[in-house]
Amino acid sequence: MRGKKDFMLILAGAAAAGVFVFFLSVCLGHEGFGIPEDAILRLRMTRALCGAAAGAALAAAGVAYQTVLANPLADPYLLGSSSGAVFGIAALSFFGISRAGVLFPVTAGICSCLTVAAVLKIAGRSFSKKNIILSGVAVNFFLSAAVIFLISFRKKEFFSLIYFMMGDLGETRMSLISASVIIAAAGSLFLFYKSRFLNALAAGKTLSRQLGCDWKKESLIALIAASVVTGAAVSVSGTIGFIGLMAPHIARKFTGSDARFLLPVSASTGAILLMLSDLAAKNLLFPQEIPVGVVTAMLGAPFFLWIYRK
């Protein structure tokens, strides 16, 4: 058993690693290592901020989904939560609303909540692991098709949205970034505040009731918070898969399943994973770019199979 002091050390280590990777993302470029000129510095800082925020948010959402659904395979991407958010954003684009401000993360959050509700409804009452993932995949397919249908009407944004669906951290509109970061941070902090309940939920339906936790209400709150956080992350980064799956599993190796520690360490791990993936996406074929979602999927899909076989 690890003591509280050990946990604090792990937490500090994760935070320090996060800061280090942020620094790396800003200073490491195609030309080598060093502080770049002002315009590039700003660009890289914005990009690293988007990566860190989206990665941390997706990881926090992943912890909540995995805990509440007692499903190690749950993740915002596989649950259809991210696709729901993208659908909301595509719908706004369909009506010609430009991507800025609070409206986008909020709409994405609402659509993400509705999608998760639909997936769980389709999966049935038992919440069996395979059922949830299968209905998530089916809803994902449906929503992706719906998004492509919607944007077919708006040829001008077609390519941008297709790229967005593959994950892209090139967002620079500060009003959108700040709104999304605030919502994601607030949601993640709320989940952290609720981590005692998350621990109770992890103990299962019956035991959590004995621990004095209203299982239904707390599960619902945690799922809503996770979906809102996902919506905020998606509205800056597009669909980025598997971060919410990988980060909690990696973090669990260090912290165990106590949500009070698992959540912040996962968030930090998610941020690190996404910033590193983006570093690769940006520099592998410089000056051409690979969508960052492609990099995370290349890492995440084998990881998913590994967890599935365990």
């Binding site: 090139g170 940006k282 000056p287 051409q288």
Partner: peptide, 16 residues
């Protein structure tokens, strides 16, 4: 100057 007709490029590259 690229092999492709319509390459996707990095904003950093454009600034430089």
């Amino acid at each position: 100057v690229f092999k492709d007709s319509y390459p996707g490029v990095n904003a950093e590259w454009l600034i430089r």
